[in-house]
Design a protein around this nucleic acid. Structure first.
Lengths: 204, 204, 204, 204
DNA sequence: AATGAATGAGAGTTCATTCAT
DNA sequence: AATGAATGAACTCTCATTCAT
């Protein structure tokens, strides 16, 4: 890779990092390109050599956040299709939960950004909404598959998907804000139990 | 009540209604006092005769939204303390759920506002956060009480409270956005079942 | 008229005058709202209390310039319809020419603005073009009427109208720029003679 | 010519063509070097290897436009000096008009540029003004000569020259903008007639 | 010869709030 | 009680040009 390309990537990363920090501190709307540029140590105009506009920077950060999550869900869906027994399936669910929980620390500030802008009125809210609905689709796919195989009770898949995602979101938000007693490792298991005991078919 | 007082209240209501609409359309930050005043048909300066600043208007809207919800939760908590049997308690839970679901249509735009600003960086986010934590407290109180009486399994109360609130929030958001197949009436029951079957003690 | 209204009008006039000067010095595009406001001695934001945007200020100036010219043309057209003999008609033409020439000194800077922006690419050019085509319409109406009455030879009315307007424009521009030997008083007569001798029917 | 020189000229032509298009679309001021370079497919900096600055590019385009027109006028003036009879002279006038009208289609976009920038406030306006005054000089020379030989009536030469140029400009502008019924071929004749019948001495 | 990163001033416009009327 | 004029800082984005590579 040429030296120019290397420098360019490094600078893009620097801008994204600074942008992330300011978006978190001030929100997408209030964070100004001027301050982002200043944080990186570049001129205002230089910013626009790397991103078409503020929105493009935000999109890049979203890509960073959601791409690995979507990938993890897709991988689980794929594996589930190959799973033969209910036991295998349950294991895969738990692995997925652990997998996602494992991603969390790396993605921490980006997750924070997700919540900050999730329902905002501006363009940031729209982008997050688009990604969120993709996640929702994946979750529904997985649950539908599980229901068809008799792994979970015959609830309305959409409702259950929303409920689970909502729980995960709320707990993640609590974790991000260091609300006491939310421990990443135990919570995944705890939550799984709550939902599984509730949604799996009663044993004879 | 004097005619003056009546007119003052009517105008406050008009300002709040216009403010609500604009906060929803544009977000708290982007909604300008100028446009709110114009929507009401008053001068910019007149706005400040009724609210100290934009923030005060937002606070008033929050009061409108959260006060009845907190009241409903408090009433349930009170009634639960007087309930003797587990059957009575379960009934009270269902009544509370139905009660809250019944409030939803009236509060619809205000609920939308809740989500719009829930995690925002500015002052609006802080206010919503304060109210949200009050709701969380109430939920924990109720669940702790239920657990102490053996009505629900011995989960971590905080985690379960967060999970339930998250689910409710996510489903409410879906309902607000007319995502298909989220019907207010059935969803309360469905959700109760999901959580109850999961969290109540196994029957012998 | 209330004192507020009076002051408002005075300030609008002050803004228009300053705007005119700067539009002339720098052109519509390069003239900045900031400098216009500074020339008036008001804050940047105050400008927008009086005009929606820079374009609106330009439109107001165009109104000032073109409205009296259109009025003069319409008055001539009206009078022509009532004129009985060719002699009367010719007299009216000369009166119109003198009339317009009489307006020129008052409108001088505004006429300058017309030429500055007449063919410009931006929004200013479009507005001027719109007004210009209105003038063209009026000129064609008058010429068509004159031709129908046998006052002028049977040329293509549109071509002649364009030729006359073009001549007038070019001479006006020369006058505005103090190109020597363009005297307002004599030029109207001179030009009339040039065109009349050429376009009136040959005498028997 | 060396291959290098050939390539250099080809690239200059490409830049001029792109510049012309953008100057027409956006106006000299708003057309940015960046977009011109992008249209050619070269880097921003490369532009400055071929033209000292944006102004220099504009000058080159003016050269392209005005040089042939000045040449045509000079040729006519020269031929007129050698002409013996009024009939010969009139013929030469008509030939010149036809000649210029013949140039028009080739120069079409450049003519458009002339009008766009003719009275603009910036440097582009000054350059066009300089060329325009050269054309005016030539026209006056020709008319003075014609008057001295008794070919045209004893009008003020300067006024007539301005009137003719103004007419030609206005009709050309109409033709450029496809205002209906302006046909290049007939218009030259029509205009000649209008002016000739008006300015040549009365026949006995 | 060609590149494209970098600059920083400057553009139009909006904002919440104050205060004299 | 009500008005609306005034502020000036803040915003996003564009510009012509330079220069190290």
């Amino acid at each position: 890779m040429g030296i120019r390309e290397t420098k360019r990537i490094a600078r893009r990363t620097a801008i994204e990092d600074a942008g992330l920090r300011l978006f978190l501190d001030d929100g997408y709307d209030r964070a100004s390109v001027e301050r982002i540029a200043a944080a990186v140590g570049i001129a205002r105009g230089t910013f626009y050599l790397y991103y078409e506009d503020k929105q493009a920077l935000f999109n890049a950060l979203c890509e960073r956040l959601y791409a690995p999550i979507v990938a993890a869900l897709d991988a689980t869906a794929e594996a589930l299709r190959a799973a033969a027994t209910p036991q295998e399936q349950q294991l895969l669910f738990l692995q997925m939960a652990a997998n996602l929980a494992g991603l969390a620390p790396t993605l921490r500030p980006l997750l924070m950004l997700h919540f900050r802008e999730a329902h905002s009125a501006g363009p940031s809210g729209e982008v997050v909404g688009m990604w969120t609905s993709r996640l929702q689709e994946r979750a529904e796919t997985i649950l539908t598959d599980a229901r068809n195989r008799g792994l979970i009770r015959d609830h309305d898949v959409r409702t259950v998907a929303l409920a689970i995602i909502g729980s995960v979101e709320r707990l993640t938000w609590a974790w991000l804000n260091d609300e006491s007693r939310v421990y990443r490792d135990t919570v995944a298991l705890e939550l799984s139990t709550v939902f599984f005991r509730g949604i799996h078919p009663d044993e004879p």
